[in-house]
Design a protein around this nucleic acid. Structure first.
Length: 331
RNA sequence: CGCAGGGUGGAGCAGUCUGGUAGCUCGUCAGGCUCAUAACCUGAAGGUCCUAGGUUCAAAUCCUAGCCCUGCAC
């Protein structure tokens, strides 16, 4: 019997290892990777040229059929039928998928979601998990239904959040967790003998999309919370502090263990050696490890201070910060 | 041709507008001081000022073209 035809939908780089894993199975004949759905090319990068998603690029390099609709629509239905799609797998695709398409593949449609559901449903589970302060998150494999990230789950795999993890590190862990998860459940998925359970009604939460204003910080909150928030938003969109007309982007920070400062929250402190810190709401400080001036590269703070002056003692502007996690939907 | 900033010894920057001896904070090396040090003192090495043309008595600086880097946006 010919291997089942599988279509993969994804846009974000986090899904690339999973796609590669599916391709490995394709080459060993366990399945047939019949095509990839990704978001359309966007104007991006310097020069604003049309740039395909990383998964689109991968598809072109591996000569896999590629479909890039603005949103999944009738053309997508046709495209799936042409490839006699038996199973549709999704990770970080970026669009809701309508009923017609959901009901098309005989083996079903499943999503790899980067959280331990039912917590952190929605667009930014990695960021929200980092900001929340929990020490463990994961990837969940679930059926796709009408309601966002609410389908019955087949299983999940967890990954620890280390104290210094940013999006980069955590995304990498979850990216590979998704591979393991796929490994465990691919036989079930391909056979159609699915064992899944409903998500609990307790512990549901949602995370919103990020917006440009999320880069700003409120220094009235405790250092530990700020530390998590900054790691959650690094490198994208990246957090900044602004003093007067100067804006500095933060790439890397640490909690200053040296104690308490009775200074206004947001005060920029010059510490011994080539160290700089920002005072938070609880009097603890955040060590600046790596920052960036406009139009300049990121620099370790010691290097930065060799060529730049910082407005010592001045106070960074605080902006209210919208929560990343919500207990109800819509927000 | 989306907008904007930048490229100067090993690192980070000033100097460019107004052309005229390559400068600052560090690092490196040598010596000194010190119980000692990432501290201090003295000295030294280290440069195609991104590239290629042009203007000029003279270009890091002005003109033209190109390469590379960074931010905005998604």
């Amino acid at each position: 019997m010919a291997p089942p035809s599988v279509i993969f939908a994804g846009s974000h780089p986090i899904a690339l290892p999973l796609l590669q894993r599916l391709y490995d199975r394709h080459q060993t004949g366990q399945l047939r990777l019949a095509g990839i759905i990704s978001q359309p090319d966007r104007l991006s990068g310097r020069g604003k040229s049309m740039t395909p998603t990383i998964l689109s690029q991968w598809a072109m390099e591996h000569n896999i059929s590629l479909h890039r609709p603005e949103k999944p629509d009738e053309s997508t239905v046709t495209w799936l039928k042409e490839r006699s799609c038996k199973l549709l797998l999704v990770m970080a695709y970026g669009h809701m998928i309508g009923k017609t398409i959901r009901e098309l593949p005989p083996l079903g449609i499943f999503n790899f979601h980067a959280s331990l559901l039912p917590r952190f449903r929605g667009a930014t589970p990695i960021e929200a998990a980092l900001a929340s302060g929990i020490e463990e998150t994961g990837v969940t494999l679930m059926k796709i239904i009408r309601e966002m990230d609410a389908g019955d789950t087949l299983g999940s795999i967890s990954a620890p959040i280390a104290f210094h993890d940013t999006q980069t590190e955590l995304t990498d862990k979850l990216s590979h967790a998704a591979c393991s998860l796929c490994e465990s459940f691919l036989p079930q998925l391909l056979s159609g003998n699915i064992i899944c359970i409903p998500q609990p009604n307790e512990g549901i939460s949602f995370c919103r999309k990020l917006e440009a204003s999320d880069r700003f910080l409120d220094f009235h909150i405790p250092a530990e919370v700020l530390h998590r928030r900054i790691r959650a938003l690094t490198p994208r969109p990246g957090c900044v502090f602004e003093i007067g007309n100067h804006v500095f982007k933060i790439r890397s920070i640490d909690l200053d263990p040296s104690g308490f400062h009775s200074k206004t929250p947001g005060t920029l402190l010059k510490l011994t050696g080539s160290n700089a810190a920002l005072v938070a709401g609880d009097g603890k400080a955040l060590l600046l490890k790596e920052i960036q001036a406009p139009g300049k590269p990121f620099l370790p703070i010691a290097d930065f201070l060799r060529g730049h002056e910082l407005p010592w003692g001045m106070i960074s502007t605080s902006h209210p910060m919208k929560p990343l996690e919500h207990t109800s939907f819509p927000f």
